[in-house]
């Protein structure tokens, strides 16, 4: 907002994007595991300008009781933006967008979490967006997956997420806020890197079938980069210097 469309050059003649990145270059990503004392597992991520905290509680008793499932545990997820996380104050009540994102994040993690081991319990994931930038749902997912592993909740695989998109008629990795606003397409993807399964995919914007295939592959390559950073965060916490 405030910046006119014409002021932004999304892709310059040297092939650099509005924040100086190459087309296949992600933003700076930093993840730290185990940042909260009370949560069973937690993680903090900085992904571009996103600053996000994720905390996991459980498995624990389900309240209200009628939600409990006798064959398997249930997963709940709340993605929530702080009022101060965006330029114009956000009403703290959950918006429809936040409710939808909470749902898709939960469904992206569910294939990985072995809930069948914990009947009658719930695993709660709380995600707080302290500062929002483009691609906050992917960054939130990355932090949530690390927090789940930190909590010791059995997982079939990690879940790593990254977006790709179309900007100035070019498929690029990891869309930032300006590219999301002014670009042509945004495709967040979450991926289980060892089981090779896509657990989240959404798309806003128009792609030809060829661009679609390229975009999915680009996003998956981003997920693999994120996966290495998630692994490092967990290794740093649990194995310290020993793992190097």
């Amino acid at each position: 907002m405030g910046v006119k469309k014409s002021d932004i050059v999304l892709l310059d003649d040297k092939g650099l994007r509005c924040d100086g990145r190459k087309i296949d270059q992600p933003r700076r990503i930093m993840i730290k595991a185990g940042v909260l004392k009370n949560a069973n597992g937690s993680a903090y991520i900085e992904f571009g300008e996103n600053k996000i905290l994720a905390g996991v509680f459980g498995p624990r008793d389900v309240h209200p009781k009628h939600l409990a499932n006798t064959d398997r545990g249930i997963l709940r997820c709340r993605y929530h933006m702080q009022p101060f996380s965006v330029s114009e104050r956000k009403n703290p009540a959950p918006s429809r967008r936040e409710i939808e994102i909470s749902k898709v994040i939960k469904e992206a993690l569910e294939p990985a979490v072995m809930l069948e081991n914990f009947p009658r319990t719930v695993v709660d994931i709380f995600i707080e967006i302290l500062q929002a930038d483009g691609g906050s749902r992917c960054a939130a997912l990355d932090a949530a997956a690390v927090a789940l592993a930190d909590a010791g909740i059995p997982m079939r695989d990690m879940v790593s997420a990254c977006a790709a998109g179309k900007v100035a008629d070019t498929i690029v990795l990891d869309i930032n806020n300006e590219e999301d606003q002014e670009g042509q397409a945004d495709m967040p993807v979450a991926y289980m890197p060892n089981l090779e399964k896509i657990t989240l995919i959404q798309l806003d914007g128009v792609l030809t079938p060829q661009e679609y295939e390229k975009c999915v592959n680009t996003a998956i390559s981003g997920c693999k980069l994120v996966y290495e950073i998630q692994k490092k965060a967990l290794r740093d916490k649990f194995f310290g210097d020993e793992s190097q």
Binding site: K103, I198, T199, T208, I220
Partner: peptide
């Protein structure tokens, strides 16, 4: 051309399936 996608549900897709 493809202009919107939403995946849902508690399992994933392989790239080939997508």
């Amino acid at each position: 051309n493809i202009c919107a996608i939403q995946k849902g549900g508690d399992d994933g897709f392989t790239l080939e399936q997508l």
